[in-house]
Nucleic acid binder design. Structure first.
Lengths: 241, 241
DNA sequence: TGCGCCATTTGATTTTGATCAAGTGCAAGC
DNA sequence: GCTTGCACTTGATCAAAATCAAATGGCGCA
């Protein structure tokens, strides 16, 4: 099943980009062949092992990235070490905060990942000249805002059980957007990360996993692999009626 | 002290806009005289009493707004009535979610307010033709995203005392951006609203107010008027070291 | 095979904030 | 001036989640 595209001749497009799965989902989809070539001159792909930091809170932003593969967590840290994950980004999301030089968050690979980096100033220049690109980034910002607000309801008003169920539901629906069957997946986060995402402790997360398992809402193998026999049931446990 | 402006001749600008305090801060600042005239043909100013709903969760968006005066709260409600305020908007913020027809949140006047409404389709058309306008909206979305993520840390990881102090600090720094002295202000929210903003109950909010008062971090008159003798001290109570 | 290292689970106890239940104070209306 | 209603405060008790403290269970490696 070939998908026809009316945009540009493939032959005009840089080789690496032609083979890039994110080209049609990420920011690059808003660029012309020349712009892609220009951006590609300065960009480089990059593997990230679990835990590798993309940028730290308070650091100067020199690169933006596109996530090619894996999951990246965005965290905020307090002076005394308390930590909150404020966003999870999945391929092919854009990673970066346009128009600010200092990062307000830490971005770090939650799983083994791959990103495509481009220098801040090159993309910034491109954005100024390409309204379609700014539109793309605007859409992404609005999507992240919607997600952040959804999560605020979870953090502020849900019980521990609802929080854990909400997290499982979120992962089920985001981890593999291509797949029709969302009922089996690997958790991209450790219990500690899940706790930081939900505003709970590891112990509470663990207990809620056990409880959901005993009530047959989920099955768990090897701590990371989850099966959901009834997605609607999980949704009800998450408080999303 | 007259402020010189290089943009456009005042005489080309609609009368109501010329007298509008929000014109230089809000979306309108990105528009040319003709565009302002065009938009103004379809826009109307509107008073909102405390509690008046601008738009309800799940409803179809027909208008965008600019807040001229007052504070608007954005809330999410669960099926069983639990409620979380996910954003506070102050004049001259833009109010609305571009590119989506259904609202994911309820927007409601937290104080007596005034807004300037324009039909969705008129502004949408204008955005398509005006990159500068999209840039403005993009900036606003990013600002709201930064604020949402700050608040996620507060909701997920701070104690009740830190939450209340954080709220007071937020209001002190947002209620009157013009004023140099932020140490005295009126709370724009009732205790119930504050509880919904902080993910707490009214009782807990009240107790924390009392505690902060007894420790001389704040003074309170008539339930709504707050004085902060030492802003840095309040900030430390908020956990922002 | 056994050791040590982690991440995770489980259990006992404590703490924080929620819930339930009266009060208080103030302003509007008769 | 008294009642009524509403927003807020205060107090007593309860429950959910945090904290403290051991287990348990892989997994890599000697």
């Amino acid at each position: 099943m070939e998908v026809r595209r009316q945009d540009i001749h493939n032959s005009d497009i840089p080789l690496v980009c032609r083979a890039c799965e994110a080209r049609h989902g990420g920011v690059c989809s808003a660029l012309s062949a020349e712009q892609l070539t220009e951006l590609n001159k300065h960009s480089f792909r990059h593997r990230l092992e679990t835990g590798a930091e993309v940028i730290g809170q308070g650091e100067t932003v020199v690169n933006y990235s596109n996530i090619m593969r894996g999951v990246v967590k965005l965290t905020k840290i307090m002076a005394d070490g308390r930590q909150q994950i404020v966003g999870l980004q999945f391929a092919p999301d854009f990673l970066g905060r346009p128009f600010l030089t200092e990062s307000a968050i830490t971005a770090e690979a939650a799983t083994d990942s791959e990103v495509c980096n481009f220098p801040r100033n090159v993309l910034d220049r491109l954005v100024k000249r390409t309204p379609e690109l700014e539109h793309m980034l605007h859409q992404q910002a609005l999507k992240e805002l919607d997600e952040a607000r959804d999560w605020m309801l979870t953090l502020g008003r849900k019980t521990a059980q609802e929080k854990v169920a909400s997290f499982l539901y979120l992962i089920a629906t985001h981890i593999d957007p291509e797949s029709v069957d969302m009922s089996a997946f690997d958790l991209p986060l450790s219990r500690a990360d899940i706790a930081d995402f939900l505003g709970l402790t590891i112990e509470t997360v663990s207990r809620q996993f056990t409880k959901l398992r005993k009530e047959n809402v989920i099955r768990i193998e090897n701590n990371r692999h989850v099966t959901v026999p009834d997605m609607d049931r999980l949704m009800r446990y998450a408080g999303n009626d």
